[in-house]
Every structure is written in structure tokens, then in C-alpha cells.
Design a protein around this nucleic acid. Structure first.
Length: 294
DNA sequence: CTGCAGGTCTCAG
DNA sequence: CTGAGACCTGCA
């Protein structure tokens, strides 16, 4: 445990691509291009050093930071360069998309936080998603350091104290009900889900991926898109391809695929799986980032 | 004052 | 099993 951790990077990393590609909502860009945000029970600052060869993580407030946990958070065990080469060779559209999002990495975030965050994200806009999350943290999370005014994301037990009307008072809107029910559901199912995730961490299996997906779909307020996001951003599975409005547009414009009915979407899933498995989710991030970029 | 935002749920058919 | 409509809120 320490105050500063540095990693020598094997891959090209661009912080903006990581923190501004829609996978997380609590990190903000500083004037020097570094990013600050809450990681577990610490407020940290992430910057690149030495022409991008070193990633430096500094604890600003709260608990000391752990190298292993950060290594996992930034998915530093995966070689994105190798994945990118494979993608480029297979697909021309992807080749261009990768140029725009060269430095993306998929963060491995906390499961519960990701679950609640993406329930909030449905049919919502970025600025309100951010506000909603901060409200929840301030109301139910604990401060990373006394008097700092910076709050960790609440644990399931902390958030279990929230009633629907309380969350509505925080302007969560109709998602308030989903959250209350999903917190309850999570507390009941968390052991089972944890086991699923551990199995997937040991080795990737399509069947186990499906099991977890089906399990996630049982959470109130979680549909296919949100389930895919949770899988991609909070479990070892990198094969889910969330289809949101941006991806829909891309698949229609660049791949000439229809994306309206559930059937159409299943077709898209198959299509990207054949091309990019077991990393369809990483492909999704390049496409997504290239779409929001312009 | 409408429209819409990184969807999901609910019901008819 | 599939396809419309409704849905909190807030900013354009």
C-alpha cells in the first residue's frame, strides 16, 4: 500500500480515451491533462509520464492505494496492441475507428457501482447521469477522508438504507424504483454472481458468459444493453457488445446493417462475435469512441 | 413549448 | 414472442 504507484506501459495509452469513452462517470480531466476521481476509498490522480511510457497514480485523499488493485483496474495484464492488430487485419471500419481511440483501455470497475451506474444511464444524458451518481455518493457513501466532501460510491449495504422516495428526492426519477429493487436483488444474489465472475476470471467460457448475462437480466431496470455494459466494464468478460443509440448508428451507416428489432440486434451480436471474439466488447469501445468523437 | 438523452417495462396482439 | 408507448428530469 502506498501513495504513488507507477506502471511502465506496454501499450499506447491515452487517458482521455479511457476516461471519456463512457465507461465511467466519476473521473474528471484536470488542466494538465491528468484525470482525478474516486477509486474505491481513495481520491486519486492519474497522469502519464515520460512520453506516455509511464502511468503514474497518485493518492490525493483517503486510503493508500494498492498496486495490484490498480493493475487490475486498468487491465494492465492485457495487450491491447495485439488485440488492435488482429482487429485491423479483420476489418476496415475498425481500422479507422482504432486510429481515433488508439489509447483506450477497458477499466475493470466495481460490480455494484457499475450495476447502479448503468441503471441510471438508461434513456438519460451524461450530465444528469453524473449528477445523479454524485448525489447518491454524497447521500449514502462515506467520505474518503473526513471533511473532504469527496465520497466513495456506497456499498450495497449502505445504499440498502435508501427508500424509493428518498432516491426520488435526489432526482433519480423513475429509475429510483429500479435501484431500490436492484439493491435488494443484489444483496440476495451477490454470492452467486461472485462465483460466476470468478469462474470467468479463471477461463473464458461462452456458457458461463451466458449464465451471467441471464443473471444480470433479472435485475429490475437492467435490460440487454445495461447487462452488456455491466459485463464489459465490471467482469473479466470482454466479449459483450452493448448496442446503444451510437452503436446502432454506426452499424447502420458503416456496416449497412438494420438495427431495429431484437432479431436485428441478435444478428449484430453474432456478426461481431464471429469477427472479434472473445474481445467484441473492446471492438465496441473503439467504434463507440470513434462515433462520439465527431 | 416540444424534443430528446448511451433503455426498460408493460401490455396488447 | 414481438412491437408500440410511457417514462423522471433537465437542457437546447
Amino acid at each position: 500500500m502506498s501513495d504513488v504507484v507507477e506502471f511502465r506501459l506496454r501499450d499506447e495509452v491515452v487517458l482521455r480515451h479511457i476516461f471519456d469513452c463512457g465507461q465511467c462517470f466519476r473521473f474528471v480531466c484536470e488542466e494538465d491533462g491528468s484525470y482525478s476521481g474516486v477509486f474505491r476509498r481513495s481520491f486519486i490522480n492519474v497522469s502519464l509520464q515520460e512520453q506516455g511510457n509511464i502511468m503514474k497514480v497518485k493518492r490525493i485523499l483517503g486510503e493508500s492505494i494498492d498496486e495490484e488493485e490498480l493493475y487490475r483496474f486498468f487491465d494492465l495484464g492485457s495487450s491491447y496492441e495485439r488485440i488492435k492488430e488482429k482487429f485491423k487485419a479483420k476489418d476496415e471500419v475498425m481500422k479507422k475507428a482504432i486510429l481515433k481511440g488508439e489509447g483506450i483501455r477497458i477499466l475493470r470497475q466495481d460490480f455494484f457501482e457499475t450495476l447502479i451506474t448503468f441503471i441510471i444511464s438508461q434513456n438519460n444524458n451524461i450530465s444528469r447521469i453524473r449528477k445523479n451518481i454524485e448525489s447518491i455518493c454524497a447521500a449514502y457513501g462515506s467520505e474518503v477522508e473526513a471533511g473532504s466532501g469527496i465520497y466513495a460510491f456506497p456499498t450495497a449495504e449502505e445504499l440498502a438504507g435508501a427508500k424509493e422516495k428518498d432516491l426520488k428526492a435526489l432526482k433519480l426519477g423513475y429509475r429510483a424504483g429500479y435501484i431500490v429493487k436492484s439493491v435488494e436483488h443484489y444483496i440476495k444474489k451477490k454470492d452467486r454472481i461472485q462465483r460466476c465472475i470468478e469462474k470467468l476470471a479463471k477461463e473464458y467460457e461462452k456458457q458461463e458468459e451466458e449464465n451471467l448475462f441471464n443473471e444480470l437480466m433479472k435485475f429490475p431496470g437492467v435490460g440487454a444493453k445495461v447487462a452488456d455494459c455491466i459485463m464489459l466494464f465490471a467482469t473479466p468478460c470482454k466479449n459483450r457488445f452493448p448496442i446503444d443509440t451510437w452503436i446502432k448508428k454506426i452499424m447502420e451507416e458503416k456496416y449497412a446493417m438494420k438495427v431495429e428489432s431484437k432479431k436485428d440486434k441478435d444478428k449484430v451480436q453474432k456478426f461481431v462475435e464471429v469477427k472479434f471474439s472473445p474481445y467484441a466488447g473492446i471492438a465496441q469501445q473503439y467504434l463507440f469512441y470513434s462515433a462520439i468523437g465527431d
